[in-house]
Amino acid sequence: NEVVSFVKGGLKDLSVSRTNFSWGIPVPNNEKHVMYVWLDALTNYLTSAGFPDTSSNEYIKFWEGADVVHVVGKDILRFHAVYWPAFLMAAKLPLPKQIVAHGWWTIEGEKMSKSVGNVISPQELISNFGLDQTRYFLLKAMPFGNDGDLSKDRLKEIVNADLANNIGNFAQRILSMIFKNLDGVIPAKKDEVLGLEEKALFDDLMYHVKITKNIREGEIRFQQRIINFDFFGILNDLVSISSKCNEVIDKTEPWKLKSADPEKFATTMYYFAESIRCIGIMLQPYCPQAAGKILDMLKIPEGERTFEFINENIWLKSGTKIDEPKGVFPRIV
């Protein structure tokens, strides 16, 4: 809205040099002028990609032949969305494909300020809460385009609810049962041992876990959310999938099946282990360390950890010996 209003108000000529101060890049052949700082700063996008050598591999790869996306703070949106395209068009150079403006962080409800002393170092957050946990919170607590508040209590609440109590707990419960009751071996899936209601329950679970029975639709949905920087929506989806798995655990009560019906117990464990594999793959961009550990415990090869391996034709390999499970998301106290 800010950019649209500014353009509708009428565009005026913009001087690309200044004379009211001396610091800056001198204008060639005119010692009284220095370059306008935003012209100087914005052209770094080009020069870092090899410009003015427009035939260089770097320029072709990272600018001319790339879908360039600028991710900027909302306070400098006008310079990127109005001035920068004007500079590029005047020079007959390719424009960025997308400009995305993010909001501001407040700290415990207050504006971040050096004078107040409430600035928080990322290293401090990582040291106290963990790298994956910090990354997850920053993506989840600020829906893209809005402002967000960095509260340590809120960070603990989100990380414990989504990661420790939900995704982490689900993975730990199931892998521990497989390790203790099935000699740590991924069992075979025998649908014939399931009743009609149980089979329908697991079919519905796989529909959610694998995003949709038409995986292409699910892939497009996730890709579109990434393109739109909707990490908040993606993470909500992942937590919803894990919650669905926990609901099915409560309904099927597999701990009662391990003695009463070992084959049904094994098939139930297989479906849950496959769910963990899919969640682990989808979680990688947001919690790469923890997701990697989950996939390592399942012995998923490095080359089989991409989205294309979540579909109705690819399943967890039965007979795989898993490692002793260890918690990947400890509760924050």
Rank of each mutant, 00 (worst) to 15 (best):
F232A: 05
L139Y: 05
S17C: 10
N57V: 15
E304L: 03
G130S: 05
L139G: 01
N228V: 01
N160H: 03
K61F: 09
R78H: 11
K251S: 13
W23Y: 13
K92Y: 14
F6E: 08
M112P: 09
P94N: 02
R154A: 09
L131I: 08
V69C: 10
D191S: 14
G50C: 10
G117N: 06
T306V: 03
E304P: 01
L14V: 15
L11W: 02
Y271G: 01
G24T: 02
W105G: 00
N214F: 05
F144L: 02
N165W: 10
L205N: 01
G233D: 04
G303N: 09
I332C: 07
T212I: 13
A273N: 00
Y59L: 09
G50P: 05
G73D: 07
L196T: 09
L11E: 11
V82L: 10
H102F: 10
G148N: 03
S259D: 15
K92P: 00
N160M: 01
D153T: 03
Q133L: 08
V72S: 00
S176C: 08
V3Y: 00
F79T: 12
E157L: 08
L95K: 11
D323G: 04
I322F: 10
Q289V: 03
D203G: 12
T19L: 07
K97Q: 15
K152M: 14
G184Y: 02
C245V: 07
P96T: 12
E157H: 09
D191W: 06
L201I: 03
